[in-house]
């Protein structure tokens, strides 16, 4: 059952992402993308990473995309005519490059062969995750928190009140 669920979710993710890219309207694109991220979160849950799945919902679908939507609504970027609609001239090299990348990636992935490792049933529990996170990767936590602090300072600097 989980396999069928995975393939359905993978299809939903890919289709929603394609629709999001093809959509001219930023708000619609954001809605499609939220769908995509939500099904990706369920895939993470199936892959025995419930914490990551929840953070995907909270941070990506709930915060990052909301922030995008807030900016789009506040700046009124809704009308599709604005902000350079892509022409065929834009699309062709993109598709070419993307095709090359996709083919090479697929070849690389398939070329590794269908070697299946042993069926690892050792599931990472939240406790193990937390122990590893705060034990072995303590320095990374510090760096990330510094980065968030810098982001706050930078956002405050950009958004400060200027003299007219």
């Amino acid at each position: 059952m989980e396999q069928a669920l995975f393939y359905i979710l993978a299809t939903v993710t890919v289709v929603a992402t394609i629709l999001a890219i093809a959509e001219k309207h930023p708000v619609h694109a954001i809605v499609y993308l939220v769908t995509s991220f939500f099904s990706l979160a369920v895939i993470f849950y199936l892959l025995a990473a419930p914490l990551i799945a929840m953070f995907e919902v909270i941070i990506y679908a709930g915060a990052v995309m909301v922030l995008f939507m807030f900016v789009v609504m506040m700046l009124d970027l809704g009308n599709p005519g604005e902000a350079g609609r892509p022409t065929l001239r834009h699309c062709l090299p993109a598709l070419l490059l993307a095709g090359i990348t996709l083919v090479s990636l697929v070849l690389l992935v398939i070329g590794r062969g269908a070697e299946e490792g042993p069926d690892v049933l050792q599931v990472v529990s939240i406790r193990d995750f937390a122990a590893t996170l705060f034990g072995r990767y303590g320095v990374a936590i510090e760096i990330i928190s510094m980065q968030l602090l810098f982001a706050i300072v930078g956002a405050l600097y950009l958004g400060r009140r200027r003299r007219p």
């Binding site: 394609i18 890219i21 993109a94």
Partner: peptide, 9 residues
């Protein structure tokens, strides 16, 4: 690749 296409287009 879809993300890449999005960036390029």
């Amino acid at each position: 690749v879809l993300g890449l296409i999005c960036v390029l287009i």
